[in-house]
Design a binder for these strands. Structure first.
Lengths: 231, 231
DNA sequence: TGACTTTGGTGACGAATTGTTACTAATTCG
DNA sequence: CGAATTAGTAACAATTCGTCACCAAAGTCA
């Protein structure tokens, strides 16, 4: 404790190369898919995440919006930071540090993609190791936060059926849910409100459309939960 | 959709100044406290978070360990990223981007602090606006993740009493918990195991010491919880 | 010594929540 | 029309949770 190295003295910033790597996620064909862009000729991998350096004085979420828009044609409505990555894994632009940002796009948003394509998360092509890490962490983050944050609602259009909502949860959680329990829990949470629209989707009874509309939370403070640990 | 600006073309990294800002947290005097270091003469605020630029090829957590060690004399055992911050709030070293990293120190760890001091979170002195944001986000992160991650156990020594554990939870959650419920939930989680030590703390019955020792989780997959939304 | 206080620890009961089964409703298909 | 398909719910059983009541083992103090 006494003979510690006296290093601190002067903190100092150094110049670093920084990239914002955007993980655009959307349910496509019954799987969670990520948007990749075709890499320029000569790159080691054929596909990369949309990325760029932030412009001077540009906030990170603004950079993510700009980057996502440029490949998607429209700005996603929802972003969330995944983390900063500075290990030695290779980045396609050799950035020292990557900021990973997840963007969520609802189902059904048709996109005119020139040089980009949706890939289901379990059928990813080869991407740079840094990008692979960012994608994996983004997916893990979304799956882990799905019941603390209205992420699932960001993967659906404004109006949706309860079956669609349940499907998104099943997609994210990777397991089937029980219909009655799901609806009872949703009801009790006051997170959605019914619209007066109904949708007939081929066979079967038409479903009522709902919208996300969180009400004042009733302050029912519950006890501590030890069963939610993920590590 | 058709006439979108054709900006993407060439992604490129630019040089940026980067800082790692470390939020060292520990329960001190029945409150969650953060470690601040005295700022060099001439700085606008008298106190700052421990911070520095990362060394070339240094991983962010390694940088955080180095920075925390240099003011604390020992490396914290636990780190977690808080996020990246690039808005225009002023950083003491005028870094363009800050990576906020939380470090947790157990109670009872005595530290020989020359130029540093513990401040309870609700009695913070003036710090640079960027640092204020990082501290607030770190505290919010710890409070929010306390029941998904064994954060509370990182704020206690290896061996602890159940009352101490409950106190840490009460500190983090900001409310009293019911003893019997707390212990029943803990029991059911198989997260701790008793040691054969007991501690007599002045008056009252001695308490058994426990250690954190998470067992294989029984795969009791519960339903979706809509009551944990925080926004 | 022996009440009283203080802190640790647990059993048990009613209330609330959750998992499940089974049913009804509204539509398409043949 | 009846079978198939999807939506939506009532109701019951099993489990979990909040609480109260109590017992245990120490220190305090007359």
């Amino acid at each position: 404790m006494r003979d510690r190295p006296l290093v601190p003295l002067k903190a100092a910033v150094r110049k670093t190369t920084l990239a914002v790597d955007v993980v655009v996620l959307s349910p496509r064909h019954d799987a969670l898919a990520v948007l990749l862009v075709r890499a320029p000729a000569g790159a080691r991998e054929r596909w990369t995440l949309p990325w760029d350096g932030p412009l001077p004085d540009e906030a990170l979420e603004d950079a993510a919006a700009r980057i996502a828009s440029s490949t998607l044609g429209a700005a996603p409505a929802f972003f969330e930071q995944v983390g900063a990555f500075a290990d030695t894994r290779r980045h396609p632009g050799d950035a020292d540090v990557s900021i990973g940002i997840a963007a969520l796009i609802p189902t059904g948003v048709e996109t005119s993609l020139d040089d980009a394509e949706w890939f289901p998360l379990n059928e990813l092509p080869a991407v740079a190791p840094r990008h692979r890490l960012v994608v994996d962490r983004a997916a893990a983050m979304v799956r882990q936060r799905v019941d603390q944050s209205p992420l699932a609602f960001r993967l659906l259009p404004q109006n949706f059926t309860l079956s669609e909502l349940q499907s998104v949860y099943e997609l994210l959680l990777g397991r089937r849910l029980h219909k009655a329990s799901f609806r009872r829990a949703l009801q009790a949470s006051y997170l959605v409100e019914p619209t007066d629209e109904w949708r007939s989707e081929g066979r079967g009874r038409p479903a009522q459309l709902f919208r996300y509309s969180p009400k004042k939370r009733r302050g029912a403070r519950r006890g501590v939960r030890f069963d939610l640990f993920s590590d």
